[in-house]
């Protein structure tokens, strides 16, 4: 969509003031973006008379105004979020690739490919929404928090990762692999089209396992620098464990933790008498595990970890 410079400036000024609003303090960049998108949708009736006045976008329909604002909003977010993602990817340690029988590790090339994929992915609105959780989980080191406990306890999750998925690597490598799987998880939306069979949930869509497997294969073919098991884990993090109990443990873990962090706000103050945000989320997920296709045993262990640590 072509936006003239004047409209762009007005939209940028409006979006700038919205993003700077103190009410949005504590939200991550993508969470903030989601809040503003919902704000525009919910308050369209009140906003339209002012935004269609002479001082803003005179005479334009709400649809047009909205698309101008959204386009500028994405641009504004991208200006901040892309450098963050680049930094995150550059900081990631891909030495775990060697444990996945990737003989010719070229970390620089892998990082460049991943960055290119992520930049393309950001053009997809649904992917952006799911990416919110992945990014927050990596940003707040959520995987690390849980993996340390998983290794200490050596229970179900540990067994599933090491013995069933056969990821024979250390704690740090597992953490990096799940982080990367979470980061790549929303790539599936680049391939989904209208008519793709999927289940819509509040935590993102659940795709059929044969679809996610096919996408993983396609990505592996396009990006040989990244081990196929990484793409498999990342894509299967969008599939339901109830439909296929062979889904990799790293994918199940990535799916749960990314969903948990979708609305995660570390500074959120819980009311007296309420359980912690993490425990509350995991317990609700335990009740809805079939709906979301989570692994209930994994949720049980994560719940115990969160409860024992007061998270």
């Amino acid at each position: 969509m072509d936006i003239n410079e004047t409209d762009k400036q007005k939209a940028a000024a409006f979006i700038q003031r919205l993003t700077a609003n103190p009410a949005l303090k504590g939200f991550s960049l993508l969470q903030r973006e989601e809040q503003i998108l919902q704000f525009l949708t919910v308050n369209s009736r009140q906003l339209y008379p002012t935004l269609s006045s002479q001082s803003f976008f005179s005479g334009k329909s709400w649809e047009t105004i909205c698309s101008i604002l959204i386009s500028v909003l994405y641009e504004t977010t991208d200006q901040e979020v892309i450098p963050d993602i680049r930094l995150l990817v550059n900081k990631m340690d891909f030495t775990f690739f060697t444990f996945l029988r990737q003989s010719n590790l070229d970390e620089g090339e892998a990082k460049q490919i991943i960055m290119d994929l992520l930049l393309k992915m950001l053009a997809n609105e649904q992917a952006r929404r799911v990416f919110t959780g992945s990014l927050a989980a990596i940003h707040y080191n959520i995987v690390k928090k849980f993996i340390v406990e998983v290794y200490r306890r050596r229970k179900y999750i540990h067994f599933e990762i090491l013995k069933v998925e056969k990821l024979k690597m250390g704690e740090k490598e597992i953490e990096n692999m799940i982080d990367l799987a979470m980061l790549l998880k929303p790539l599936v939306y680049m391939f989904s089209q209208q008519g793709t069979a999927m289940k819509n949930t509040a935590n993102g869509n659940i795709f059929p396992n044969h679809f996610t497997e096919a996408i993983a294969q396609s990505l592996s073919a396009k990006a040989p620098a990244v081990p196929p098991r990484v793409f498999k884990s990342a894509m299967n993090a969008n599939a339901s464990f109830s439909d296929n109990n062979q889904i990799e443990a790293s994918a199940r873990m990535g799916n749960i933790l990314a969903a948990m962090c979708r609305n995660y706000k570390p500074e959120v103050k819980k009311d007296r008498g309420a359980d912690t945000a993490m425990k509350s989320w995991i317990n609700v997920a335990r009740k809805n595990y079939k709906f979301y296709g989570y692994d209930i045993k994994m949720l049980d262990e994560l719940y115990n970890i969160a409860a024992d640590n007061g998270w």
Partner: peptide, 25 residues
């Protein structure tokens, strides 16, 4: 809470569920 969580996929967000309110702007 599980019922509410499941229904959030179908429900449109409402003004009360957002941190940013009309009063803020």
């Amino acid at each position: 809470l599980p019922l509410k969580d499941r229904s959030q996929a179908e429900d449109e967000p409402d003004a009360d569920s957002l941190e940013l309110k009309m009063d803020d702007i």
